[in-house]
Design a protein around this nucleic acid. Structure first.
Lengths: 349, 349
DNA sequence: CCGTACATTGTTACCGATAACAGTACGAAA
DNA sequence: TTTCGTACTGTTATCGGTAACAATGTACGG
């Protein structure tokens, strides 16, 4: 017979384990089912409702979502695979996603991956799957992640968060994003642009590169070069330092702000001034970008919204879709001091 | 009679829901309890073991942690309250914590708080508590969080992650940390040091401030001033721009690298050179700090380890303490180009 | 060859909720 | 007053595991 447990719990301070619907039911002298119905807001006689409410006041009940999850098959948890949370973008995406999840009554189970390690990825996934989640979200949009997500049937909705550029590449050159940067630079007279991209395995990196090339092509130009960094300032620094003398372009389009910073630093060490000799642009508009020396021209992305969007999209697939995925706000060009007219003829160390 | 469900699931591709121990038991012709024992690695006859293993190969079983959690009261999940994940430190702490959790067979439920909003905090907590967690960890070490954690009995172990400086303040001036920066600067001849701190509600900010003052006092000096920023480059920029003419110190000790960047930028706008006129230091050693102009002198903290440590400490309280909390590696001084001998007498805009 | 100790396996109860269905109370119609 | 439909309420089954105990099998000593 149910409802015969947890009778005494000492008269000390706080209930060790909070009451169950059976405790409430006993205290209110109704069936546990009525309590369950009350909690779910179903119709019931006023008198019953009042009995339950009185009991609730006394006992401090808190629903046990584990038990509910077991029977309903809905855990109200979403697994999130991410990486490099220390970076500005990914961090904000997570933040946006967790708060959106929270609003919808979900919780985000975050696993930070050691990127590039496929073993790690698989292990993480199989661990995640044990916790019957309602859905799985990957914010790490790399080839290996995408491959795994396409091949595997997780038994629950799973999706890889889309990059903001994914649906822009094909469209025209002056679309928000890297294209805007390029046309800004071309408008300043630059013709020899170098791109410092992220790792080729990242779709964001590829998208930005393609947008760069597409925009240049529109102006009848070709890239003055493409270097591949790893999103870090250090990698861009090294790439710029490695540029052969005489082949330094008049403008550098880095795939994120950190790499732009590294590029600026390297240019400085090579005796080149920004923007007088070389213009430099970033992507992201981190809060620091405005305080670089010189302040960085870049494009601003709304990462929080991106995270929220991915979550809402997943929620819709789960079937708990209250909201419709909002449109991502368009990236906006932020003009600052790191770009200027093409140098008229400085020497080129 | 148990074990009579999930018989047919279509002959299509993948099992909609993975098999349960009852399915395995039926296939192996043993009791479900034997399967449970097998999964937990208990002793059993070889023949039984083999039967189960054969069944497992056929059916692709995956334990349901929800069901296990319901009976054992162990969810193997830990709630994590955090904030400003977009910043370098907090992000890395989360990363360290999630991977440590993963190794121990736990999952981290992350909630990113809108700091300073106590309502938000309480709401987040009460939501967290529904998901019977094994423990709760707060990485946001602010007054309001601490207060809530001290007052509330969550029914499970809960702790606020310690700041690296917490156990250093009382000790001597040349302890790793801000003290090291101060003695470095004093060693260069500086006597008028300004501190740009974080928000006073953050214990990390207070600790750094106290360390700053204590170190100065050791040399018989007093702060040339203390400004309070909000960890952002912008806030430090404004603080430095607001300094009355003539009161600009010869060295600025910012409480993190971002604020150091903002300070450098402001100094540049006021026509002061770093480090010739003013030395500037940060705290954190973000990957970008080396590529500031000038490269930033700062102290390096191991945030990942900090996150891991907090998690291990909590695990110990939970009683699942395999490891002992390792000692945090001492912060190390990183000397770069933003500090130099006290200026011998430039004018002071 | 039998009884007992011990190792292994099977049965039933339980965790705390919801689902499905049975049972009761009440008001309206006959 | 009786009957019936409707609206609640109560009872039992269920989710997928583990716990506790009962039952069986095996090994060994007498």
């Amino acid at each position: 017979m149910p409802g015969t447990r947890g009778a005494d719990q000492g008269d000390s301070t706080v209930a060790r384990r909070s009451a169950t619907i059976y405790d409430i039911a006993r205290a209110a002298d109704v069936s546990h089912q009525s309590v369950s119905r009350y909690m779910r807001g179903l119709d019931m006689r006023r008198s019953t409702k009042e009995k339950i409410e009185k009991a609730l006041e006394t006992l401090s009940y808190r629903p046990n979502l584990t038990a509910r999850a077991l029977i309903t098959g809905r855990s109200h948890r979403i697994g999130a695979l991410t990486h490099e949370v220390n970076q500005y973008g990914p961090g904000l995406i997570i933040q946006g996603a967790t708060s959106a999840a929270r609003e919808a009554g979900y919780l985000l189970d975050v696993i930070a991956l050691d990127m590039g390690d496929t073993n790690d990825l698989n292990q993480a996934l199989s661990q995640l799957l044990q916790y019957d989640l309602d859905g799985i979200l990957a914010f790490a949009s790399t080839d290996s992640v995408k491959a795994v997500f396409e091949q595997t049937d997780f038994g629950v909705p799973a999706l890889v968060a889309a990059e903001e550029e994914d649906y822009q590449v094909e469209t025209s050159f002056d679309r928000p994003g890297v294209g805007q940067l390029v046309s800004h630079l071309v408008g300043l007279g630059h013709e020899r642009l170098l791109h410092i991209g992220g790792p080729e395995t990242y779709s964001a990196a590829r998208n930005r590169l393609r947008a760069f090339e597409a925009a240049l092509a529109h102006f009848g130009l070709k890239p003055a070069g493409v270097a591949h960094g790893d999103w870090s300032a250090r990698s861009a620094y090294q790439a710029v330092m490695a540029l052969p003398i005489g082949s330094v372009p008049t403008a550098i389009v880095a795939a994120n702000d950190q790499m732009a910073l590294g590029a600026i630093h390297a240019l400085g060490q090579r005796g080149l001034r920004v923007p007088e000799d070389v213009s430099v642009t970033g992507v992201d508009d981190t809060p620091e970008a405005a305080y670089f020396t010189p302040a960085l021209t870049t494009i601003r992305l709304d990462f929080k919204e991106q995270g929220k969007n991915a979550l809402v999209a997943l929620l819709n697939e789960i079937g708990d879709g209250g909201e419709h995925p909002s449109f991502l706000p368009a990236p906006t060009l932020v003009l600052r001091d790191s770009t200027g007219p093409r140098s008229t003829g400085a020497t080129n160390p």
